[in-house]
Each structure stands twice: as structure tokens, then as C-alpha cells.
Design a protein around this nucleic acid. Structure first.
Ligand code: SF4
Ligand code: SF4
Lengths: 139, 139
DNA sequence: ATTATACCAGACTAAAATAGTCCGATATGA
DNA sequence: TCATATCGGACTATTTTAGTCTGGTATAAT
């Protein structure tokens, strides 16, 4: 799980959304401006975020996006997994890869554990916690 | 830090080397056969491993590679970092990237912490520990 | 109604990273 | 002197990432 701009964009954008007052939809144009993310790319990312039910949309003029759940019920892992093209753990041992003669390689368990470690980290942080930290830093 | 075949090859190869009886050099041909890794690619990887002083070489016929240190003094992070083209953490917040107006992005600290988590994991496991686990599994 | 705004969908392209190959050297034990 | 092995680097191919482009649809405001 390396930090790609896609993942950073996704989390920064959703966090920007979560930081706005609830109730009114936030347009991608706003987020694009504040977070310096190309609008067209943001649209592509939010399509996936909506499909994964991280956000919901309001169409038409004055439209935009809203979080589907409370910030305390969404984790970093939810957001990152949503924009993923394949599954988040597809690089990790699943019994295939270059396994010869159906035998796992020497380090199979290590990669499984690393995968679990990263997932636990990302899943252990809610958007609410991130917001709290960000607000705290600004003072 | 995603699991690439380069990293997996590197660790499997070094582990294969560490599993052989100490004292005599192990040729890449052997490792290539046992671990099903293309020989030419293995040569490229071991060049880096040598430069990083993870292994040392014996040239000529009956030559090969040896670990520079005891397996208890080498960690997974040492091996993975050795084959890296750039630094291991170059994807993580270093104050640049798409930082606008010299301000870190909203999630800078999160990525720093993730980076630290992964590094601690990789650095906390020695080759000796891996070998012990592998031997244990086989029974 | 018309228009401006914004979401929606997917095909397309460009750039970067990854995964290798190829060629020709050099060292050394048999 | 020959077979085996490390060395060095340039080269290519493939895959992934990072975006763009085009055209459509929904809806609030004028
Ligand atoms: S056993 Fe090794 S080679 Fe096979 S999927 Fe797991 S990590 Fe990859
Ligand atoms: S502050 Fe954000 S954008 Fe800048 S280097 Fe760190 S993670 Fe990347």
C-alpha cells in the first residue's frame, strides 16, 4: 500500500468534504479549488466513492456531494479501498502469484502479516479522529 | 510499500541464501532454480544487495554470494531497502509533493504515521526470525 | 423555456514505475 | 584454456498510475 496521489487526493477530498458544515452538498469545484486537485480527475474518483457508498450525490445546479454516514463511522480504509481499481490486498499472498507447484513461497506469511498491519492501521482511524487532529493542529 | 515481485524476489532469494549452510558461497544459478527467479534479473538484484552490503560476492568458478552479517543482524527492511531504486519512503510526506503555498496537505501526518508503521514492521523482523518460522512451519 | 451549474459515464492518452532482457566484460577454479 | 560465475549498464516490454476529452443528464435559478 504505497501512497499514490490517487489515494492522497481521495482522502484529502473526502476530508475536505467532511470539514464543511453538514446538510448542504459540497461541489467538486470547491474541493478542486481548495485542495488543488484536477476537477475531471476528482469526478472520476467521486464516481467510485459514490459506488462504494462513502458519499452520495445531489445532481443539478447547487448540487454536490454529502457523506453517506457520520464521520465517526467512516475509516481511512473505506476511502482508500473505494478508489482502488482492484482489491486493496491483491498484491498480497492469496495462494497464487509465482507459486510453483501450488506451494507458497518462503515469505508468504510475512506479506500476509504486513498486509494485515497496514489494513489495521488504515481501518483503525476514522474520519472524525482525523478531523479532530487537524483542528487541533491549527491552533 | 506495496508488495512488488522485485521485493518478494529479493527477500526470497536472500532467505534462500541464508538457509544454505554457512561458509560456502551460493551461486545465483542455484537460487534461480530453487526460487524460480529469472537469473539475469537476480543478478541485477544482487548487484544492489552487494552495494548495500547485505551480501558479499566470490567471483569466478565455484563463486557465489554470502551474507555479510549474521542472519540475526539483518532485517527485512535491510533487504527491501537495498533493491529500492529510490529511497523507501520517497512517496511519503517530506514537505513537497503537491503542497500548495508551502503548506502540508490535510493528511500529511497520517501518511507519515503509516510510513513509520510499515518501516517498524519490516525493521522489526530479522532474517533469523524468518528462518526460525519457516523451519517451524515445515514440521 | 432557457440557461448555467453540476453530476455522470466511459473511452482515450501520457507518463511513470516495474519487470525484465541482452551484451559484453572480468575473475578464477578445474 | 575452458567452464562457471560475478559484474556493469544499456536496452525493451509491460503494467500501473494519472490524468484528459467528449458528450450526456438532472435541476435550480432566471
Ligand atoms: S506464496 Fe509468495 S508468491 Fe505466492 S502469492 Fe503468496 S507471496 Fe506471492
Ligand atoms: S504534505 Fe501531503 S502532498 Fe505534501 S508531501 Fe506530504 S503527503 Fe504529499
Amino acid at each position: 500500500m504505497r501512497l499514490t496521489t490517487k489515494r492522497r487526493y481521495a482522502l484529502n477530498a473526502v476530508l475536505d468534504l467532511a470539514l464543511q458544515p453538514r446538510g448542504c452538498a459540497v461541489s467538486l469545484k470547491e474541493i478542486s479549488d481548495r485542495q488543488k486537485i484536477p476537477l475531471a480527475y476528482l469526478e472520476k474518483l467521486f464516481r467510485k466513492l459514490r459506488q462504494s457508498e462513502v458519499v452520495k450525490s445531489v445532481r443539478g445546479a447547487a448540487g454536490g456531494y454529502l457523506l453517506t454516514k457520520n464521520a465517526s463511522e467512516l475509516t481511512v480504509a473505506d476511502v482508500v479501498a473505494a478508489v482502488e481499481e482492484h482489491e486493496l490486498d491483491r498484491n498480497h499472498c492469496s495462494g497464487f502469484c509465482n507459486c510453483n507447484e501450488h506451494m507458497p513461497c518462503l515469505t508468504a506469511n510475512l506479506w500476509k502479516e504486513l498486509n494485515r498491519t497496514v489494513y489495521d492501521f488504515l481501518n483503525g482511524i476514522t474520519l472524525e479522529e482525523l478531523i479532530r487532529k487537524i483542528r487541533h493542529e491549527k491552533q
